[in-house]
Structures are given as structure tokens and as C-alpha cells.
């Protein structure tokens, strides 16, 4: 929903890191994006391609998105399951006492440049 907003935050963060490391150009930025993070990769890439053109350091930077699977854990039967397929209900025992183990991450993993 807020892809453009987060793109500006990412640009600010990686620009600061690029400057600290005396880079003259950043060629790629790698993100780790959970599948239930509310951010849609295609929109994020569109916003990215538009926004980086307005910068110096990042104008050639490719956005690489590594997806992270969404997995939930059932507190009643102690099993893990796919969140996107099953939502909050455990497919093994039907319990709703479940919580998200991973899948809402939105991390800047690394950048490369020279």
C-alpha cells in the first residue's frame, strides 16, 4: 500500500551507507521481503525505478527482492504451516491459537557498488 513512501526511506538509508563507504555509484540494492509484509514487490519495483532516476548515487541501481515465505506456528499442536494457504487456522488441528513465525520482514540486506 505504501510502496512509494518506503522507497524514499530505503533511498535515504542506502545513500547514507554509500556515502560513509565513499561509493560513487550503487549498482544494486538487495531487500528481503516477507510475503505477508503488506508490500507488493511489483509496485515496489515500479516506484523504485521512478524514484532512483532522481538521485545521483542510485540512478543505475537495480532493486533485487528476495522473498521470505510466510510461516505460522500452532501453539496447540506445535506444528508450523503455510500462512498464505491457511491464514490463522492450523490445517493440522483446526486451532486458531497460532502466530506468525516469519513472513512480515522488510529488511535492507546489502548493497553493492564502487
Amino acid at each position: 500500500m505504501h510502496e512509494l513512501g518506503v522507497v524514499f526511506h530505503i533511498i535515504d538509508d542506502v545513500t547514507a551507507v554509500g556515502r560513509e563507504n565513499n561509493l560513487t555509484g550503487i549498482s544494486s540494492v538487495t531487500l528481503q521481503l516477507g510475503k505477508v509484509s503488506t508490500v507488493i514487490p511489483e509496485y515496489l519495483t515500479d516506484c523504485w525505478n521512478w524514484a532512483v532516476k532522481k538521485t545521483d548515487l542510485l540512478k543505475e541501481a537495480e532493486l533485487i527482492i528476495e522473498p521470505i515465505e510466510a510461516i505460522s506456528f500452532c501453539e496447540d499442536c506445535k506444528t508450523s504451516f503455510d500462512t498464505i494457504e491457511n491464514g490463522k487456522t492450523c490445517p493440522n488441528c483446526g486451532s486458531t491459537h497460532t502466530f506468525l513465525q516469519q513472513g512480515n520482514e522488510f529488511m535492507i540486506k546489502e548493497i553493492s557498488g564502487s
Binding site: 518506503v6 526511506h9 530505503i10 535515504d12 538509508d13 542506502v14 551507507v17 563507504n21 561509493l23 560513487t24 549498482s27 531487500l31 520482514e105 522488510f106 529488511m107 535492507i108 540486506k109 546489502e110 548493497i111 553493492s112 557498488g113 564502487s114
Partner: peptide, 17 residues
Amino acid sequence: MDAVKVIEIKKSVYESN
């Protein structure tokens, strides 16, 4: 041209905010 450097960041996009 300088060699390409990879810099690990590993932080949440929301962390600065």
C-alpha cells in the same frame, strides 16, 4: 574502475523511522 564492493546492511526498512 574500482572493484565492486558488497556492503551488508541487515536492517529493517522501518528502523530509521
